[in-house]
Design a protein around this nucleic acid. Structure first.
Length: 754
RNA sequence: GCGCCCGUAGCUCAGCCUGGAUAGAGCGUCAGACUCCGGAUCUGAAGGUCGCGCGUUCGAAUCGCGCCGGGCGCACCA
């Protein structure tokens, strides 16, 4: 509603300015900082003063005069009829406008009604979008549990997805799986070669069936295979330790062993080669595990190699399931899981290599430090000017492709630019990975059953199940932390030199700063988990400490969620008072909502360019500028309507709209209603700048304003019916706005009670 | 060395892209709140050379340049 008034008013001012001699005037309308100034303002007279050679105040006054004539002649149903007649010129040359509050508030009510109707009808069937936006986020190495850094990535990515969908854009969400990298190989090395005592220490806390004694490795491998068959490597239960937790512990043990014993590192390249070789598709995990047991096959033989590769795939898939479950708890879902192994086996790189060669973008180094490598020269690009070494290796001297090389291929596919010589798209094959469902916009995503299908890629382009059509986006957002800016620039540059400068600009690195730990948080981890990260006093004196998967320094996403839920349960119990006992299921549901709210809000409210120094006390805060504060405002508003309904005083949005249309709306209620109407503007701004702190701040402002009014404007005990209708109308507008922002945009569930 | 990011109240952070009207929150501190829709709330107080300097402008936290302090990149890791 506000948007339409704005657009029409801007157009009217532009007409006036053209009549006054301004050439193609750009008119921007803003909302004045204080309501007594007005509801909309035009400040453009000041910059125009020079061009028109007139005093800004005089320009503003003439614009105002011309507008008055235009506005007076409008029919009642025109959007600008919502403006009060007459505008005021104030200050050095601001033109301020006021809305007719009653009719505007009525308009907001009916608008909210329409929105609710749409929601009730459910999500529209996803139609093939010509202007599809692709967002890649999460992208966690499938070799250990997700940590809070990954949460920042996924929450930012998911919030962008939600905002774009809100704005009506077609969106495809991809979660890239690096299933062939060294990191997965390291876990396989751990399973196959780590001394049994170390393996036992990592495995037995998670898999109780693995006990001390002879044949630990055999039992670990058997447990892995049988749990994979039962699909119990990733449990829907949050408090249960899963395979990713086992890997979290195993991975640092492997990397430490590499440092202690250089010969041990040979296993790494052996496994890596095995993984690159792949395995026959019919090879099951049980069959693969068989020869891996001590003595059944020697390392270096083909059965052993294939079995290692099969094991690596299973490790990656098991961790992937764990990650999906973790993110699912936060209401985060995906459409497709592109696998790195498929990029290789489908020949994405081979084709990309041909294209790069044909464009003369790469060259083979005969000598020098990069001898034997294929490199891309960046020396000619302004972006990389001043670099000591402006060459980026895409193919190593041993013939394998670097991550950046694969990423170029992947990015070309995302943009619909990877084509075979005959011009057809070079595409993956697809296969359903799992079914999933989500009860509401901010509800947990559950796998195993449900209405939607999550697809994964395959290497066989002949596999095309119905509904599986991915890639070829008109814009691509890659959500990756800022430390990867350099390789991201290389990818962009490759697209440019391949002859696609516009596509390169449509390929956007959504960069955000890393999540680190405060020294206090590190100390707390050491205390609660009985660990010693052996950090120096200088480290502990820094403002923050970087997480490290290799050293096991980090806060696991699920562990944080568990802690948050426990704290939320405690807070709920405290507020319930003596005697009141809540059904366990209710308690769990509310606590989960609060935990998710606290977590997602913390990630969304901070600007993306700032290092997030994670602190437990801050993360566990439920009062003040927090998710639960916002949730509470929605719960409170809904509670009013429940109570009203119980007494037969609820009325309806239509009734309130009629009642309010001719009534004087006091300043404070109007302020809240107007702020609610600015939500689409805030979403636009957030998306344009990729700063969700704007949206989070907007939501907090709304909640703050509501909480204040809640104390001053009782609805149930209003002095008369017109007063009640006015308050009810305003709070109705608020309830719709805050619920939309929380559940649809920020993915924060609104519980019934807290 | 080159590049990017950060510096705003005691602490944690919005606001900067697109200059505008009195720079905002939260935490912490202090003082308060109705037998009345849930106190995860609200009211009030104290707390700011917006790192420093120069410039552009009618106007700078916001734009430009230069410093200072901190962080991160510049891999045959991903």
């Amino acid at each position: 509603m506000l948007e339409r008034v704005r657009n029409e008013l801007a157009a009217a001012i532009a007409v006036a300015l053209r009549e006054m001699g301004a050439e193609s005037p750009q008119v921007a309308l803003e909302v004045p900082p204080r309501r007594e100034l007005g509801d909309l303002a035009w400040a453009g007279a000041l910059p125009l003063a020079k061009g028109l050679r007139r005093a800004p105040r005089a320009i503003a006054e003439e614009v105002a005069r011309r507008l008055e004539g235009t506005l007076a002649a409008l029919p009642d149903e025109h959007p600008l009829a919502l403006l009060e007649p007459g505008c005021r010129v104030e200050g050095p040359g601001f033109v301020n406008f006021r809305l007719r509050r009653g009719p505007a508030l009525a308009g907001l009510l009916t608008e909210g009604l329409r929105k609710t109707d749409e929601l009730r009808r459910g999500p529209q069937a996803p139609s093939p979008e010509p202007q599809k936006v692709i967002i890649e986020h999460t992208n966690i190495n499938p070799n250990k549990a997700a940590h809070i850094g990954h949460l920042r990535n996924s929450v930012l990515g998911d919030t962008l997805v939600r905002c774009l969908r809100f704005l009506g854009r077609g969106v495809e969400v991809q979660n890239y799986v690096d299933d062939t990298g060294v990191q997965v190989a390291d876990i396989v090395v751990g399973l196959l070669y780590l001394p049994e005592d170390a393996l036992l220490a990592a495995a037995s806390p998670v898999w109780p069936e693995v006990e001390a004694g002879k044949g630990v490795r055999t039992r670990v491998l058997q447990a892995f295979a049988s749990r994979a068959a039962d699909r119990t490597l990733a449990s829907p239960e949050l408090a249960v330790a899963d395979f990713d937790d086992l890997c979290w512990d195993l991975y640092p043990r492997v990397t430490r062993r590499y440092e202690e014993d250089p010969e041990f590192a040979a296993h790494r390249s052996e496994v890596l080669h095995a993984v690159e070789g792949g395995f026959p598709p019919e090879l099951t995990l049980e069959e693969a595990v068989e020869p891996l047991r001590a003595g059944a096959a020697d390392p270096g033989t083909e059965p052993h190699r294939q079995a290692s590769a099969r094991l690596a795939a299973a490790v990656a898939e098991a961790n992937l399931y764990c990650h999906l479950a973790t993110m699912g708890r936060l209401g985060i879902a995906y459409d497709v899981l592109p696998h790195e192994s498929d990029i290789l086996h489908r020949g994405f790189w081979r084709r990309t290599f041909e294209l790069l060669q044909a464009a003369g973008a790469i060259r083979f180094e005969e000598e020098g430090k990069n001898a034997g490598c294929w490199v891309m020269s960046l020396a000619e690009s302004a972006e990389f000017a001043g670099m000591a070494d402006a060459d980026k290796i895409l193919v190593r001297s041993n013939g394998t492709v670097t991550y950046t090389g694969k990423d170029i291929a992947y990015q070309l596919w995302k943009l619909g630019l990877l084509r075979d010589p005959d011009g057809t798209l070079h595409d993956f094959g697809y296969r359903p990975f799992d079914r999933f469902g989500q009860a509401g916009p901010a509800s947990p995503v559950r796998y195993g059953a449900g209405e939607r299908t999550l697809f994964r890629t395959t290497a066989d382009p002949g596999e095309r199940p119905p509904g599986a059509s991915f890639g070829a986006g008109s814009r691509v957002f890659n959500v990756i932390d800022v430390r990867q800016s350099y390789p991201q620039k290389v990818v962009k540059e490759a697209i440019r030199v391949l002859g696609h400068p516009e596509a390169a600009e449509s390929s956007i690195h959504f960069a955000y700063e890393m999540v680190a730990l405060t020294p206090a948080a590190v100390r707390r981890l050491e205390e609660t988990q009985g660990l010693d990260f052996r950090l120096s006093p200088e480290d502990m004196g820094k403002p923050f400490i970087e997480m490290s998967g290799r050293r096991g320094i980090g806060v696991k996403a699920d562990a944080l969620l568990v802690t948050l839920i426990r704290e939320a349960e405690r807070a709920i119990a405290e507020r319930q008072g003596e005697g009141a006992t809540l059904a366990a299921e209710q308690l769990a549901g509310r606590a989960r909502a609060i935990a998710v709210g606290a977590l997602r809000y913390q990630m969304a409210r901070q600007g993306r360019n700032r290092v997030l120094a994670f602190d437990f006390d801050e993360a566990l805060a439920f009062e003040g500028d927090t998710g639960p504060y916002l949730q509470y405002s929605a719960v409170r508003a809904n509670k009013i309507f429940e109570k009203l309904a119980a007494q037969g005083l609820a009325g309806s949005a239509e009734q309130d709209a009629r009642a309010v249309a001719g009534v004087a709306v006091p300043d404070d209620l109007w302020e809240l209603a107007l702020a609610c109407s600015r939500t689409p503007e805030m979403v636009e701004k957030s998306v344009a700048s990729l700063e969700f702190s704007l949206l989070a701040g907007h939501a907090r402002d709304l909640a703050q304003s509501f909480h204040k009014l809640y104390h001053e404007h009782p609805v149930l005990h209003a002095e008369d019916e017109p007063t009640r209708a006015l308050r009810r109308a305003t709070f109705r507008v608020f309830a719709v706005a805050i619920t939309t922002i929380l559940e649809e945009l920020l993915g924060i569930p609104v519980p019934q009670e807290m």
